[in-house]
Design a protein around this nucleic acid. Structure first.
Lengths: 244, 244
DNA sequence: AGTCTAGAATTGGTCAGACCACTTAAGCCC
DNA sequence: GGGCTTAAGTGGTCTGACCAATTCTAGACT
């Protein structure tokens, strides 16, 4: 019921995208011509063209006027937004590697953003971060805590004044929202806020060394907990016990 | 002569993209209807539609069947690929902030990738990194050194087995290639390779702590030098001397 | 036999106009 | 005023024609 009807062009785009990522259309080769795709898919040429434009925009193909449309190697040309589409395309261990990549990047950016926020945060940033932290401590459900935690880090990213981090986090958030639904299995009863407390303090005091250290601790702890929750949900059973 | 003729759709896309980023089309408002754009720009509707599809793909707008096309706040929805288009759109100090963001992110990812590479690198990774490092030491020109340095970090990213870092770096590379042309002002005569030596060794020895530390040193040094070169080129005269 | 070139075939780019599908707003009825 | 119907507005799809760039091919030339 939450599903929106996809437009034809969007459907073709996703179809071709999937076939490119899975290797069905090999990198270096040419896609079928627009007219051939029209014949094969039974749609109009405009729909096909709109799909191809989207593929080109995400760097999956390169269109050459008169010379065909070449499939690129997405690992060499693609952007971070591809991460989404990489899930469930290969083996589970491949999914695990992508998930690990995602968490590592999120951690690295968050830690560095915390470091920068400690030196660059404005007075407003400081107060916003503190008030969000208060809200975290009063969260009534794991869903609410999750939501406020995301707000908390958003505030830090903003305070860091790094637009590249902000844009990257936009994309990363789309991805780890995929895992949010597992968050229900997570208990907030005995959740410790000491590390977030330290982080909040360090940023307030403009102490970038302590902020970096606290952020590192927080991020490692949260990553470990997320892994635990996912294991409970049976998502990655082979995570730390290879074929038990 | 290196300029390729843009297609109409591509031209419209870039035009609208620029107007969205500059704020001429404000976030939250609706774009003119497709038919209005056709009238205003004097092109066919298919060309307009292809441009809109690209805008939607890069999250700059949200298209609603029957309900108009809404402009998004690119800072909240956009991906890392927008970084390109942010240069030269506002003031020079804004360019500086973006450049700083770019370098910070590049540094953070490179350092963490080095850390991971130290624990995950295969035997082939190790040998590749070492051989590229040898090539760096024998580089004859600053251009060649630059090229080999990029290869060196690419090899580290690959060895880190982090697909998110790889995809991010694809986008970042497009951006800092913009600054490559200033590299000619840079002398390799007295370039010190000790830090890269340490980094290469640490990765070879699977010593992730040392690798992280060495990477941090290298990255800070290189960023500082790039800033110097850019100042010589007169790009950011107000970098560390505010209105001298 | 090898090379070059002009023309044909292929492929992407643009245009025009019609009609379908969904949303929004206006007007009507109660 | 609230709720419904209807019309207008906006995006989605299709068709078919023609333009523009590249690639292939057959023929001419040496």
């Amino acid at each position: 019921m939450a599903e929106k009807k996809k437009s034809t062009g969007q459907a073709i785009f996703e179809d071709l995208q999937q076939k490119i990522i899975s290797g069905e259309y090999a990198a270096g080769t040419n896609l079928p011509s627009e007219r051939d795709l029209v014949g094969a898919l039974g749609v109009s040429r405009s729909a096909v063209r709109e799909a191809l434009q989207r593929l080109a925009q995400s760097k999956l193909v390169t269109i050459n006027h008169g010379g065909g449309t070449k499939v690129n190697d997405y690992q060499e040309t693609g952007g971070l937004d591809l991460l989404n589409k990489l899930f469930n395309n290969k083996s589970i261990s491949f999914d695990l590697q992508i998930f690990r990549s995602l968490m590592e990047m999120r951690s690295a950016l968050a830690v560095d953003a915390a470091r920068l926020a400690a030196t660059r945060r404005s007075e407003e940033d400081k107060q916003l971060i503190q008030s969000i932290f208060e809200g975290m401590k009063q969260a009534q459900s794991s869903t609410e805590l999750q939501k406020r935690t995301i707000e908390y880090w958003d505030a830090i990213i903003n305070a860091s004044e790094n637009i590249a981090y902000k844009l990257s986090m936009n994309t990363l958030k789309e991805n780890y929202s995929y895992f949010e639904r597992f968050g229900e299995n997570f208990s907030i009863k005995n959740y410790k806020f000491v590390y977030y407390e330290q982080l909040t303090q360090a940023i307030a005091n403009k102490h970038h060394v302590k902020a970096e250290q606290a952020a590192k601790t927080v991020v490692e702890r949260d990553a470990r907990q997320l892994v635990n929750v996912l294991e409970l949900a049976g998502k990655f059973p082979e995570l730390d016990k290879q074929s038990s």
